[in-house]
Design a protein around this nucleic acid. Sequence first.
DNA 1: TGAATAGTGTCTATAAGACAATATCCC
DNA 2: GGGATATTGTCTTATAGACACTATTCA
Lengths: 251, 251
Amino acid sequence: MPRDADRAPTEADYLAAYDAEAFERPSVAVDVALISASEGALRVLLVERSEHPQRGRWALPGGFVAPNESLDEAAERVLAVKARLTGVFLEQLYTFGDPTRDPRTRVISVAYYALVDAATWDRAARDTEKLRVARLVVPWEGETGGPVEARDPDDRPLALAFDHEQILGMAVRRLRGKLDYAPIGFQLLPPQFTLRRLQDVHETILGRPLNKDSFRRRMLASGNLEATGEREECVGHRPAERYRIARRSAV
Amino acid sequence: MPRDADRAPTEADYLAAYDAEAFERPSVAVDVALISASEGALRVLLVERSEHPQRGRWALPGGFVAPNESLDEAAERVLAVKARLTGVFLEQLYTFGDPTRDPRTRVISVAYYALVDAATWDRAARDTEKLRVARLVVPWEGETGGPVEARDPDDRPLALAFDHEQILGMAVRRLRGKLDYAPIGFQLLPPQFTLRRLQDVHETILGRPLNKDSFRRRMLASGNLEATGEREECVGHRPAERYRIARRSAV
DNA sequence: TGAATAGTGTCTATAAGACAATATCCC
DNA sequence: GGGATATTGTCTTATAGACACTATTCA
């Protein structure tokens, strides 16, 4: 890491810094990676672009930020309008501002990610012409980072619009990083779930198998789970107990 | 976490989502928390506002994003112009977009944090009328989060402008969260340093004492450090070996 | 020589991984 | 009863915290 201090800023630098209010203003949008997990893979909702630019490519649902709404509210609105979902887990991810990321004009995108369980998913976003639930393929391990691929149900790659490949890569990296210390695994499951299903979700996010015993101990010790007393039924083997998120999450 | 699916979006929702290009565009700025550590406390560079709004209050150095620069470039420019620093560690933090955060007009701020060692600091930003190095007081433990206070050299609180108290709080929280798994502690130290100085930095960031033995073991095992063979001099006690960042950081 | 901190070695407590044994359901 | 997975218990291993001890420099 070089530390070249004391480069003398030019007059132009000063002008650029102080007169920026006169600059042309960029458009600001939010793009939401709505993520779920099923059958061992992460899934994401994509929208086919019907207009130029990038017509025919697949994009994250997004929209421009209205004058009187906060960024969080804009993201919630996008979810409500495009996926018909409200009240889901939603968190800001990163802001993408390369001047050339949108060929039309300068568009700065504040990316969000949202997590839902597969059941809610099925109600909200069936596969249609314009809307598709794509499977994510992560070509890197751990928290290396980098773009990820989206595949259709026949395992064909979907061409993503703009820099949405990067946004999805960042989302997966964030998920992997937060999973161990933040209570986010549950968000991909229905209100009640067995420990095995929770482990499935963790393994899907991390892209690697986990030790069953250690996983049980960690989860139960975390204080984030609460036994319901109920059990699975009709499963062809000993039924597992169902858990839910503890009211006082953590200690 | 409620999961109220299926609220039918109104026509107005659709229009808001799709006609947003016609919206008035917000201004987009970057604000940089330039952070250092010395004498057991985190320090941050603040600029006194000479204009309304919030005249007389202290703000993070910032500037509007120019049409042809990326967000990272804008943050680098702000550092070069206001602190005369280039090549320092710089990373995007979070984007603040409350519609009322700036009373003039809608300003969305992409916040960054930068890390420098105290020596570079002293060269770059002496205390002047307009520029001040403030001491940060963190009124919460661990990664709880929340606003932090800035104090002047006489320990008097400095009134911060806009939501910069929140931005600083987010910066401290991010630092605490990343410290254990990302190589960022070195960024607050000169190119060569002893393990004790590194521990000082970690304790300052975390706001709590660390176990000396365990800290040594972890740091040396991380593979991020490289012994220089040199030692301290004239220290009135056994001189410690100096280390630097390993060329191949981590494995 | 003594003050002060660097660096090493050992013991203990805690958490993760491995493995075995038992429990419980449906067929 | 047999298949299949849940759940519990024990053992081993890695890591963090605690503490004692030695090493080295300058005053």
